[in-house]
Amino acid sequence: MDRLTGQEFNIWMPDNSLELIEVTGNDVDATLLKIGSVKPVVNSEPSEANYVSGWDDRAIFHNDDIYYLHGNSIWKSFWQISEITTGPF
């Protein structure tokens, strides 16, 4: 909100993450349950190109491991504790 005019502004901010969603139940009463998310830590170095698009993002799941390809980097996390994210690699 602008302090001088009192006008409210909606500003779009890029925020990329891999949302982890689990399907529970069966065909009749299936529901979606959000488990967590993998959020890449963006390097703020000027030499790094900012990558905000998610068009080419990919993920690989291997047992409990999650590998999230975001831009030119890979981030690693875990299904049960997605708040622990390491990378970029």
Results as ranks from 00 to 15, higher is better:
residue 87 G to M: 08
residue 28 V to P: 06
residue 74 I to T: 02
residue 69 L to F: 07
residue 87 G to C: 07
residue 86 T to P: 01
residue 6 G to Y: 04
residue 35 I to G: 01
residue 1 M to K: 05
residue 21 I to K: 05
residue 25 G to P: 01
residue 11 I to Y: 08
residue 36 G to N: 04
residue 74 I to Y: 07
residue 68 Y to N: 01
residue 36 G to Q: 01
residue 5 T to C: 07
residue 55 W to S: 07
residue 12 W to A: 14
residue 38 V to N: 04
residue 14 P to I: 00
residue 36 G to Y: 00
residue 22 E to F: 12
residue 62 H to N: 11
residue 80 Q to T: 12
residue 85 T to C: 07
residue 13 M to Y: 11
residue 61 F to H: 03
residue 4 L to H: 03
residue 33 L to T: 14
residue 51 Y to H: 10
residue 61 F to C: 05
residue 48 E to D: 13
residue 47 S to Q: 15
residue 18 L to V: 10
residue 48 E to S: 14
residue 36 G to W: 00
residue 74 I to K: 06
residue 82 S to Q: 04
residue 30 A to G: 12
residue 47 S to E: 10
residue 67 Y to L: 02
residue 80 Q to H: 06
residue 23 V to I: 15
residue 42 V to P: 06
residue 36 G to S: 02
residue 6 G to K: 00
residue 68 Y to E: 07
residue 21 I to D: 01
residue 81 I to Q: 01
residue 10 N to E: 10
residue 28 V to G: 13
residue 25 G to V: 08
residue 55 W to L: 08
residue 51 Y to W: 09
residue 83 E to N: 03
residue 83 E to F: 05
residue 14 P to Y: 05
residue 52 V to M: 11
residue 78 F to H: 06
residue 52 V to L: 09
residue 13 M to T: 11
residue 19 E to P: 09
residue 30 A to S: 15
residue 54 G to Q: 07
residue 18 L to G: 05
residue 61 F to Y: 05
residue 5 T to I: 00
residue 59 A to C: 03
residue 3 R to S: 15
residue 27 D to P: 12
residue 41 V to L: 13
residue 28 V to Y: 14
residue 22 E to H: 15
residue 68 Y to V: 06
residue 27 D to R: 15
residue 82 S to Y: 01
residue 40 P to N: 07
residue 64 D to M: 06
residue 17 S to A: 15
residue 52 V to R: 03
residue 28 V to W: 06
residue 50 N to L: 12
residue 66 I to E: 04
residue 43 N to A: 11
residue 11 I to K: 10
residue 81 I to M: 03
residue 24 T to S: 09
residue 34 K to R: 13
residue 35 I to Q: 05
residue 73 S to K: 12
residue 87 G to E: 04
residue 49 A to T: 11
residue 53 S to C: 12
residue 59 A to D: 01
residue 10 N to F: 09
residue 41 V to Y: 12
residue 50 N to T: 08
residue 78 F to D: 10
residue 5 T to H: 00
residue 28 V to L: 15
residue 32 L to P: 04
residue 47 S to P: 10
residue 33 L to C: 13
residue 51 Y to C: 13
residue 61 F to P: 04
residue 31 T to V: 06
residue 11 I to L: 13
residue 31 T to L: 10
residue 50 N to K: 10
residue 47 S to K: 11
residue 43 N to C: 14
residue 84 I to C: 07
residue 28 V to T: 13
residue 12 W to G: 10
residue 33 L to H: 15
residue 75 W to H: 04
residue 59 A to P: 03
residue 23 V to W: 13
residue 40 P to S: 04
residue 3 R to T: 15
residue 57 D to L: 05
residue 19 E to D: 10
residue 7 Q to P: 04
residue 41 V to E: 03
residue 84 I to N: 10
residue 45 E to W: 14
residue 16 N to Y: 05
residue 85 T to Q: 05
residue 83 E to W: 02
residue 72 N to W: 12
residue 78 F to I: 12
residue 17 S to Y: 03
residue 8 E to W: 01
residue 20 L to K: 07
residue 53 S to E: 11
residue 39 K to A: 08
residue 25 G to W: 05
residue 33 L to P: 11
residue 6 G to F: 05
residue 15 D to G: 08
